[in-house]
């Protein structure tokens, strides 16, 4: 009987109990509260358009999460990759294209994923209309990237530049391209710029 009072039993049982409860609870919760990619997309759409927008199947050009093989391979460029491309509120020739772009070589080799909305008229890309942050991986200094970093992409004065081949860059010395630096988080800003550069490459790039 003394075994149950001994320190051995009490320590092991206590740790075991807490470990089991926390492990079990976490697994069950992580399965229950799993945010599916579709839900993430609809949230992003809600943020861009103010209300969740249904995207019909034929309007999906690329979607890495979709099981349709022809559409599930992302378009990669040396700035990163475009994981999702949707056509939204299509009426005739003019429509919006919404990209989920992932910019590479951020801080510690991490990446930043942005949603970029580009307005098209008679099948020609007109301007980058909105940029919002989706998620970042290993970018510990994200707090330094404020709202004006994202709005800078949508300003009119840069529209002409990226239309004729210029891309966004973080380092001051590169005057050929459009400057969009952030002090204190240069690597993360670099990844952000690369994400938008993917979209520019796709819309106004060589192809």
């Amino acid at each position: 009987m003394s075994f149950f009072k001994s320190i051995w039993f009490r320590c092991i049982s206590c740790l075991l109990a807490i470990a089991l409860i926390s492990g079990g609870l976490l697994t069950i919760l992580s399965n229950l509260l799993y945010v599916s990619p579709e839900e993430r997309t609809s949230r992003a759409m809600a943020k861009i358009y103010g209300a969740p927008v249904e995207v019909s199947a034929e309007n999906i050009i690329v979607d890495i999460d979709s099981d349709d093989a022809s559409k599930s391979s992302p378009i990669t460029s040396n700035y990163g990759e475009l994981q999702k491309i949707y056509k939204v509120n299509v009426n005739g020739e003019s429509f919006d294209m919404v990209f989920q772009a992932q910019g590479n070589n951020g801080y510690k080799g991490g990446t930043i994923t942005l949603w970029v909305k580009v307005v098209f008229e008679n099948n020609l890309p007109i301007k980058i209309d909105k940029v919002i942050l989706q998620s970042s991986d290993k970018q510990t200094l994200m707090s330094k990237i404020g709202g004006d970093f994202y709005n800078r992409f949508t300003l009119d004065d840069v529209t002409e530049d990226y239309k004729n081949g210029k891309v966004f860059t973080g380092n001051q010395k590169d005057t050929a391209n459009i400057l969009n630096p952030v002090s204190g988080a240069t690597y993360s800003a670099n990844a952000g710029n690369n994400a938008v550069n993917c979209v520019i490459d796709y819309c106004w790039g060589t192809n």
Binding site: C11, A19, S22, L26, L33
Partner: peptide, 26 residues
């Protein structure tokens, strides 16, 4: 028991933070 108090406390705190993160995310 006081011999295992650090692992027990840390486990409680870590579990709790993860639960909060999952709930908030959803």
């Amino acid at each position: 028991p006081s011999q295992v108090r650090i692992p027990a406390f840390v486990l409680i705190i870590a579990t709790f933070v993860t639960i909060v993160r999952l709930v908030l995310e959803k």
